[in-house]
Amino acid sequence: MTLTPDDIEAIVLSVKVAVVATLCSLPLAVFVAYVLARWDFWGKALLNGLVHLPLVLPPVVTGYVLLLTFGRRGWIGEYLEQCCDLVLAFRWTGAALAAAVMAFPLTVRAIRLSIESVDPKLEQAASTLGASPFMTFVLVTLPLSLPGILAGTILGFAKALGEFGATITFVANIPGQTRTMATAIYTYTQSPTGDEGAFRLTLISIGIAMLALLLSELCARHIHRKAADL
């Protein structure tokens, strides 16, 4: 079994898209998770719903909404192109955006749960020592919810790696530009002679996903061991 140059291109692109999507959305995911876990405000249910929407919508709908807003004629897309020379539609950057949006609810959910499990009494203790809300977050909440943040990141990465529906709707399936592993497998399955190629990439997909899960398990163990040393 040998990989063709196109296969390798798809694999590299998939990993690049997933890494960029995960890392760029992580700070926002942590912030939103914190807001949902700790703040009480009008419209919280609305924000929660909005964050979870990509989880329950058909991915093709999410992709189409992205096309309407971030496409070259979409109101955000047009602005981004004018101000920052950034085009998302039918580019790998758009694939990263689609993957990030689709992975966001999973990441936020995991992080929110772990922030909620941090005892607010410890945060109070930090404030009596002179820690502003931000410093309290950095010194207490963030380190204590690190295992959950890690789990959420891995989960989001796995989701981003396999994203298909929103990606193909928003950025199509252009070889070398937006053809990720998932869309490449889809392309193979559309051709009568594509079985072998589809199988190759399927194995690679499983391999990368397993590797990510193993890595997260190792990290989690490391954190637990450190916690046990305490």
Binding site: Q124, A125, A126, S127, T128, G130, A131, M135, L144
Partner: peptide
Amino acid sequence: AHKRRIGYVFQDARLFPHLSVGLNLRIG
């Protein structure tokens, strides 16, 4: 709270479990 110069001793100590005793003490 964080702008008041207080020291608060809680019934349940509330030490930061992820930091050593030394760091717990230095943070304030």
